[in-house]
C-alpha cells in the first residue's frame, strides 16, 4: 500500500533537508536588494539612452 511508504518518505525527506540545509549558503537579503537596485539602474540608463536616441532621430529628421 502506498500509505506504508509514508514513514519511509518522511524519513528520507527529513535526512535530505537536514543535509541540504547544512550546505545551502544564504547570500542574505542584501544581495537581493543590490541585485534589484542594479536592475533598476540598468532600466533607467536604457530609458535615458532611448530618449536621447529618439530626440537625436527626431532632430535629424527635422533638419533634413
Amino acid at each position: 500500500m502506498p500509505e506504508d511508504y509514508d514513514e519511509l518518505i518522511h524519513g528520507a525527506f527529513g535526512d535530505f533537508t537536514e543535509d541540504a540545509e547544512s550546505t545551502i549558503t544564504s547570500a542574505g537579503s542584501g544581495d537581493v536588494r543590490s541585485k534589484v537596485a542594479r536592475r533598476r539602474q540598468r532600466v533607467r540608463v536604457l530609458v535615458v539612452v532611448a530618449i536621447v536616441v529618439l530626440v537625436a532621430v527626431v532632430g535629424l529628421v527635422a533638419v533634413l
Binding site: 535530505f16 533537508t17 541540504a20 540545509e21 545551502i24 544564504s26 542574505g28 537579503s29 537581493v32 536588494r33
Partner: peptide, 17 residues
C-alpha cells in the same frame, strides 16, 4: 522584507533543490 527573506529562503531552496 529582510525578515521575510531570512524566514523563508532556506525552506524554499530545499524544496526546489
Amino acid at each position: 522584507f529582510d525578515a521575510f527573506y531570512s524566514a523563508n529562503y532556506l525552506r524554499l531552496t530545499v524544496q526546489i533543490y
